[in-house]
Amino acid sequence: MSAFGLALTPMKLRQRRVLPGFGLSLGFTVFYLTVIVLIPLMALVIRPFALGFGGFWTEISTPRVLASLRLSFGMAALAAVIDSFFGLIIAWVLVRYRFAGKGLLDALIDLPFALPTAVAGIALSTLYAPNGWIGAILIAHGIRIAYTPWGVLVAMTFIGLPFTVRTLQPVMSEQSQDVEEVAATLGATRLQTIFRVVVPMLLPTLLTGTAMAFARGAGEYGSIIFLAGNLPMVSEIAPLLIITKLEEYDYAGAAAIGVVMLAAAFVMLLALNALQAWAARRR
């Protein structure tokens, strides 16, 4: 995200600004950004503090809210780890191997981006229901996914996969292979080369993709609610609790959860920028 390599630059205006439209384009950009994004976000940020910090804390610290936050962030972290593991393998296979049907595999990766989350939600719910294609097999082995926290994990894993694959792919394909050749001449086996050279070199990128999958999973709603069963304290995610509170006209309570999620999103954004800077320094 925002890896456009644009540093905050105190400008040395050596050359005259010749291209027109600066005032208009920047003016419109800032105006639109302010109206659509910043002012409404401001409404969210100040809302819970209408009750003072104590009021905000009371809203947040109820067991039900805490359980939902723990579920959303905990499962998102787990899903992000699963996605980074399989994303690494999938990206590697897509970049380095040749086989029939590779183009199809590649195109399919974007499905969770393109498929509306509600569609994904009812599809996953049908698949993992106790009588569904996958659910039936798992139930036979005593594993229940639907209407449990594991349903949350499955949906988040689905939704996060493209983030890790698509972050890794371009970096992998640009990484020069001479380090692998050097490792071989120094006596490393292929596995040693992969685990000691290739993967560590990709680490900043891998973490970037993981952070993106995590951020997406933590905020995800549509694909989860159909599968998770939404049992308070057990499988109720934070975004769903926001909606529940809104339906009860508890705006302050909804806003308090919203602020926590927004703060987390902001921290992730900063973390991503830091990761990107780290990755750039490695080049």
Binding site: A43, E220, P239, L246, G258, A265
Partner: peptide, 14 residues
């Protein structure tokens, strides 16, 4: 990076 639900919520608050 904002949760879709939070994206809706902000307009409810406005």
């Amino acid at each position: 990076s904002v949760s879709p639900v939070v994206s809706g919520l902000i307009y409810v608050l406005v």
